Amino acid sequence: MSTETINTAKLENFAARAIGDIASAYTGVMVGLGSKLGLYRTLAGAGPMTSRELARRSGCAERYVREWLNAQAASGYIDYHASGEAYELSPEHALVLADEESPAYIPYAWELPASMWADEEKALEAFRTGRGVAWGEHDERMACGVAAFFRNGYKASLVPHWLPALEGAVERLEAGIAVADIGCGHGHSTLLMAEAYPNSRFYGFDTHAASIAAAREHARAAGLDGRVHFEVARANDYPGHGYGLICFFDTLHDLGDPVGAAQHAADMLAPDGSVMLVEPYAGDHVEDNLTTVGRLYYGASTMICCAHAISEGGRLVLGAQAGPERLAEVFRKAGLSRFRRAAETQFNLVMEIRR
C-alpha cells in the first residue's frame, strides 16, 4: 500500500484510540488491586487523603500506594488535590468502586478479562479447531466474576421491576408456585426471588457442579436452604413439572440447544405458567449493536458464550447479541408463541413468554 492512500488523520486517531484501550486494560488491573486491598473502601467518605495516610489506614506499603493513586488519578477514577498532595474518592465514584451493595459496583467485572487472558491458549485452540470450551474449563475467576457482577444488577431490578412487569407473576408468586431457575450459577437470582416470595418453592439448575456447590452454600448462609433446592442438571432434562415460572437469566444464549431448552420449558410449565427470559441487550442486526455495550458483549460472547454453546454440541449458537427476533423464533419452534418485551435496561432485555 502506498503512503498516498493512507489518511494520516484517521491513522493517528485510531492509533490514539488503541493506546486508550491499552490504558483501560492497565486501569482494570489497578481496579482489581484497589478492590482486593481495600483501598477504595478506605478512601470512601474519608475526604482528601495523602498516600501516607491511605497506606497507614489500609496496611499497605506507601510507595506502592502512591504510584497506584497516581495511576487512578490519571485515569480519572480518583481526584487529585495538588495543593495538599492529597487524593479523594468522590461519592459518585465510591458507588462504582467501593460500595459492594451498589448496583453500579464494577470491580468484579474485571475478573472476566483476567480469566480471558488466562484462557488464551484454550481460545487459540478453539479458533483453530472449532472445538468448544465449556463453562467449567475456564479460569475460576470467570464463574466467580460473572456471579458477583450480575448479583447486584439482579438485586436492583429483578424483584422491584422485572417480576412485576410479567402478567400476574407477582400474584402467583405470593400465592405460592414452583419456580425453576435454569443456569442458576451461584444462585443469586434464585435466592433473591425466594427471599421476596416465601410462599413459593424455588429450584435452581446448572451443569457446573462448582457453581451448584456455591449456590447451596449461599442458600445456607441466607437461611433459605429449606425452601430453595439446587441441583446439577442440564437445561433440557431438569426434573419436575407444573412450574408456574421458569427463568433463564443470561443463560439461553450460552446453550448448545436453545430450542431443546425452550421445548423442555414448555413441557415443564403449568398451564397458566410463564417463562421469564433475561438476555443481554441487543438489536436484531449487527449494525444495531456496534456500541460500547455491544463491544463488551461481543467480546464476552467470543470467549465464553459461543465457546460454551459449541462445547454442548452447538446445534444453534446464538451468541450474546442474538436480538429479540431470533430469541422469539427459538420459543416459537417450541410451541410458545406469546412473546413480548416486558422490560429492559441498558444491559438487559426482559422477555415474557407464554402459551
Rank of each mutant, 00 (worst) to 15 (best):
N7Y: 12
E12D: 06
E12Y: 12
N13K: 15
A15I: 14
A16Q: 09
T27I: 15
G32S: 07
L43D: 01
G45N: 09
G45C: 11
R52A: 08
S58M: 05
R66N: 02
N70D: 04
N70T: 01
H81M: 08
G84T: 15
G84M: 00
G84R: 04
L95M: 11
V96A: 02
V96I: 10
E100W: 12
E100C: 03
E101W: 03
L124K: 14
L124M: 14
E125V: 14
A134C: 02
R141I: 02
G145W: 07
L158V: 05
P160M: 03
W162F: 15
P164Y: 04
G168H: 10
A178Q: 12
A180S: 14
I182V: 15
C184K: 09
T190D: 14
M193I: 05
M193H: 05
E195T: 13
Y197S: 01
R201M: 02
G204S: 03
D206A: 13
A209M: 08
A209V: 08
A209E: 15
S211C: 09
R216S: 14
R220L: 10
R220M: 05
A221F: 01
G223Y: 07
G226L: 06
V228E: 00
H229C: 06
P239D: 04
Y243D: 01
P258A: 06
V259G: 03
A270E: 06
A270R: 05
P271S: 11
E279K: 09
E279C: 13
P280L: 01
P280D: 01
D284W: 08
V286T: 08
E287C: 10
D288G: 06
R295A: 10
Y297G: 00
Y298M: 14
S301L: 07
T302C: 08
S311W: 08
S311F: 15
G314W: 03
V317L: 05
L318M: 03
P324I: 07
E325K: 11
E325L: 13
F331N: 00
G335C: 02
L336Y: 09
N348R: 09
